[in-house]
């Protein structure tokens, strides 16, 4: 019972982290129709920038400045890169962002090298917030939860309650009409891209100390972010949140409990072939849930695509 609670908290942390990445990506996709392959690279840049700033000015300045730098970089990429490629259609845009992801990874290795960086949580958060049955929850994780929840509330408020948000939402579905009403749609696009990448930057800043800051960090998170927005429904903030939490909890619980395929198959009335090591079904029978935990989200995505192609909260066909 205690362990369930601990796993709920761990899954929440993973899920909220994923949300910060997918929120930006899903907004960018629904607005510009661009799958930004470089999104996770901006997350990595956030971590590296924050590490570099934290050496001189401490963690908190890193948290403030790094996402801003990443956001400005992202806006620049939209303004001077994507906008030029846009006229040639979606495929060149895809290739552009794909190339950008590779470029950023090489650049990071060029500047910081291939080793992991000793990027640490600030002194003031290096204590155990509380522990449940011997499992300590580090204060930094609590901080991560609060930061992401605050960002979600902020985003939701801006998108649904403010004038800027309304224009963004309108530009999502009727860009020409919004333009005709005198709004500068390219500027809105640039802004959304900038904010989206800045969010990824924030995720990087607070994930770097926990998941370690190394050149492969974009790669390990890259694909799962796309899975999240497909499950959640393209362009839906709530969808991104629900899908992220779902994925966070599914993977955490699958890893935390050794559910064995053997037990499942026996309950279903199959008998275990003996001797098992000669059987063609050996791999299936010896499967355990931690082994497949990381592909469960992909299975979920396939199911969603079959039964509800527009995602959990999506409004239109993908």
């Amino acid at each position: 019972m205690d362990l369930i609670l601990v796993n709920l908290i761990d899954g929440l942390v993973t899920g909220l982290l994923l949300f910060m990445l997918s929120a930006g990506l899903t907004l960018i996709f629904s607005m510009m129709g661009v799958l930004n392959f470089a999104h996770a690279s901006f997350y990595m840049l956030g971590a590296y920038f924050a590490y570099q700033i934290s050496i001189y000015l401490g963690f908190w300045m890193g948290l403030l400045i790094a996402p801003l730098v990443v956001g400005v970089l992202g806006a620049g990429v939209e303004r001077y890169g994507l906008r030029r490629v846009h006229q040639y259609g979606h495929v060149p845009e895809l290739i552009f962002t794909f190339g950008l992801a590779l470029l950023i990874e090489e650049l990071v290795q060029f500047i910081w090298g291939k080793n992991a960086m000793p990027y640490e949580a600030p002194e003031s958060l290096q204590f155990t917030a509380f522990s449940i049955a011997g499992n300590s929850i580090p204060a930094f994780k609590v901080f991560m939860i609060f930061t992401s929840v605050l960002i979600f509330i902020g985003l939701l408020y801006v998108l649904t309650r403010t004038r800027v948000g309304m224009i963004i939402q309108a530009a999502l579905s009727y860009p020409r009409t919004v333009e005709a009403l005198g709004h500068n749609v390219p500027l809105i696009f640039m802004g959304v891209f900038g904010v989206g990448t800045a969010l990824a930057g924030v995720a990087g800043v607070i994930a770097g100390p926990v998941l370690s800051t190394f050149p492969g960090m974009a790669f390990v998170l890259g694909s799962i972010v796309f899975v999240t927005i497909v499950i959640g429904g393209l362009g839906s903030l709530w969808g991104a949140l629900v899908a992220s939490l779902l994925i966070g909890w599914i993977t955490t619980f699958a890893k935390a409990y050794n559910l064995r395929m053997e037990d499942l198959l026996t309950t279903l009335g199959f008998t275990k072939p003996e001797p098992i090591w000669d059987s063609a079904w050996r791999d299936l029978w010896t499967l355990t849930s931690p082994q497949i935990a990381d592909i469960l989200p992909y299975i979920l995505m396939v199911l969603i695509l079959i039964f509800r192609p527009y995602g959990l909260f999506g409004k239109r066909d993908a």
């Binding site: 796993n7 993973t14 011997g134 499992n135 799962i224 890893k255 990381d294």
Partner: peptide, 15 residues
């Protein structure tokens, strides 16, 4: 080379 976050594993070790 695929695990993003080892937290669930460390929970099991603790438990």
């Amino acid at each position: 080379g695929k695990v993003k976050d080892f937290t669930p594993y460390s929970r099991k070790i603790n438990a």
